[in-house]
Design a protein around this nucleic acid. Structure first.
Lengths: 153, 153
DNA sequence: GCCATGTGGTTGAACGCTCAACCAAATCGC
DNA sequence: GCGATTTGGTTGAGCGTTCAACCACATGGC
């Protein structure tokens, strides 16, 4: 028998569109704010954040790619730009001669520190201020469930 | 007094990162699937969907931009590509000589009809299959709340 | 040891998006 | 009516991402 498509019912339809519209609008808003206030896209901000949280403010390229959920290629291009901006520096890896280590510079840290309050404020205004505490909790569970689900497949 | 940043508490932090990771991973997965199976990015698919739902399968450029939540510029570029692919055709607007009307061609409709089952299946597999009915409901409310909130600001 | 395979990372082309500048037509104010 | 402003839409440059191809080094099997 032919496999039938399991179409979305009207409720699922509504859910999917609301989720799509909301997440896209939220990301675009935050991206634009960050671009305006800190001169970098959200993806680059996240790279700086992950580096700032790592021991000695440095990570192997592949670990950084994993942490930010980006491809090696994307990260490679991104770090090239961040390096040109003076916010990140590449170092050789002592234990694996193929490896590269991305290090957050003082300049990069200062830029991140300057950008963070505005960005956090944006996340709060555009996301958390709109939701009840119960909804925040629900969103966390949903998000974690999805991450888990997507990682397995 | 200096305005203090309302930092995210650990729970909010977790929520934000889970949401960020989940929505990005979901969009990337669906985008890749659609690119592979239908030769178009998700944004273009959505344009075709909106046109297919409109009366006579046509919409003014600005209405289409509104419906897909994209800028006029983005839509203009996108429709140019869709037109080159033969899936959309531009027509003059009879009531406003500045206006352009995007019309879904038969070819575009056929392409959409061919792509839809696979895409819907993907949305179901990657999103709805992971969530309980209660969570789907929660996600709808959260999404609609956010859309509303973002539209106001 | 040596070849085959896998892993870490980079590169360049193609593509989609953003932003600002721009043109044309419609609408407003008087 | 007529100039000023607004609206609808396009354009091109610049940027970030993707994808496939690639190089260098590491690792496993024999």
């Amino acid at each position: 028998m032919v496999v039938m498509t399991r179409w979305l019912d009207p409720d699922e339809q509504r859910t999917w569109r609301a989720f799509l519209t909301a997440s896209r609008a939220l990301m675009e808003t935050l991206d634009r704010e960050l671009q305006r206030d800190a001169g970098m896209p959200h993806a680059y901000y996240e790279i700086l954040v992950r580096l700032s949280e790592a021991p000695e403010r440095q990570l192997r390229m592949s670990d950084l790619a994993e942490a930010t959920g980006s491809s090696r290629s994307r990260l490679s291009h991104a770090v090239a730009r961040l390096e040109a901006a003076g916010w990140v520096r590449r170092e050789e890896c002592p234990t694996d001669r193929r490896g590269q280590i991305a290090v957050l510079t003082d300049d990069g840290f200062a830029t991140l520190a300057a950008a963070a309050p505005g960005h956090v404020e944006g996340v709060r205004r555009h996301l958390f201020d709109a939701l009840s505490p119960a909804q925040v909790d629900q969103l966390r569970r949903i998000g974690e469930t999805l991450v888990d689900h997507l990682r397995r497949s």
